[in-house]
């Protein structure tokens, strides 16, 4: 990568026209020369009258990070969620920036319904909080026995309307025979990352459902799902490459998917059928 950058022709019409001599980036030089040497060279060129253009690309390093926040956010709005998250690894200035890339009110919504909350009130606050804006992540964590299937449905419909790419739904202390159900086919079409905990996955709405081409990662923890539903779900997700099942009833679940690269099964009950022919070998 560095080599490529070095070879790239640096001249451009403007600079040649204006007689500005361009020079290799500082950072790249340091790779090949000793630090002192590189610096000395740069100083020498400066004295020849390059003025503020010195070490242009190396300075850019600091510069792209130093762009005003709104400009960096603007860059992030052109990126899919995954790439936006990766920019957090660039520098401190980028760490949490991706979370606010859709400007208002925030690109991630964390909803917690606590034991003393009234679910319908939390829900009303959410749906009346303004027009639906695109959201990166939606997380719903419920520790409340008063949550009704209708509430859950509305929360999830909200997430789908906001075209979320990352969805986390977690029901704490939910009984296995609870009628709180997650209907996968009603999810956002942009879903990339799905994480469910302590919830049942419903077996309806699969008929005629369109595939979720963006979906890549599925985490299921303490989730109940029928083998036949699981099969239908996987059939709707042709690009899933990572499947992570923990504390699930896995009996007779068939793990198959042409793009699956990683399958994790931890503390699950029952036998899992792994169809290796239908799993991509890394």
């Amino acid at each position: 990568m560095l080599g490529k950058l070095l070879e790239r022709p640096r001249g451009n019409g403007l600079c040649e026209e204006l007689g500005i001599e361009r020079q290799p980036a500082m950072a790249l030089e340091s790779d090949t020369n000793s630090d002192g040497g590189a610096r000395a060279k740069r100083r020498r060129v400066d004295e020849q009258g390059i003025q503020s253009k010195e070490g242009a690309e190396a300075v850019l390093v600091v510069r792209i990070s130093a762009l005003p926040v709104d400009l960096r956010q603007r860059i992030l709005t052109h990126l899919p969620l995954k790439d936006a998250i990766r920019t957090a690894a660039l520098a401190q200035e980028w760490r949490d920036l991706w979370k606010s890339r859709w400007a208002h009110p925030t690109s991630c919504r964390d909803i917690r319904v606590l034991p003393d909350d009234i679910p319908s009130k939390v829900l009303r606050l959410l749906v009346e909080s303004g027009p639906r804006r695109r959201l990166d992540c939606f997380s719903l964590v419920v520790d409340n026995k008063k949550l009704r299937p209708q509430h859950l449905k509305c929360f999830l419909a909200y997430a789908a309307e906001c075209r979320v790419e990352g969805l986390h739904v977690e029901l704490q202390h939910c009984k296995p025979d609870s009628n709180l159900t997650f209907h996968f086919p009603l999810s956002s079409r942009r879903l990339v990352h799905l994480s469910l905990r302590g919830i049942n996955i419903g077996s309806t709405f699969y008929k005629g459902a369109q595939p979720f081409y963006a979906l890549e990662v599925i985490y299921l923890d303490s989730v109940r799902i029928f083998p036949s539903t699981f099969k239908k779900l996987m059939a709707l997700c042709p690009h899933v490459h990572t499947l992570d099942l923990r504390r699930c009833h896995c009996s007779k679940l068939l793990m198959a998917g042409s793009n699956l690269r990683s399958i994790t099964i931890v503390e699950c009950y029952g036998m899992v059928n792994l169809d290796l022919d239908a799993v991509a070998v890394p």
Binding site: M1, A27, A58, R74, I75, H78, L79, R86
Partner: peptide, 24 residues
Amino acid sequence: VAKKVADMIKGKSPMEIRRTLGFP
């Protein structure tokens, strides 16, 4: 220009992004 920078970032690993944008 924002889209151009985004295109330089898209589909890359963090290290690749750092190198593409010239971070040390």
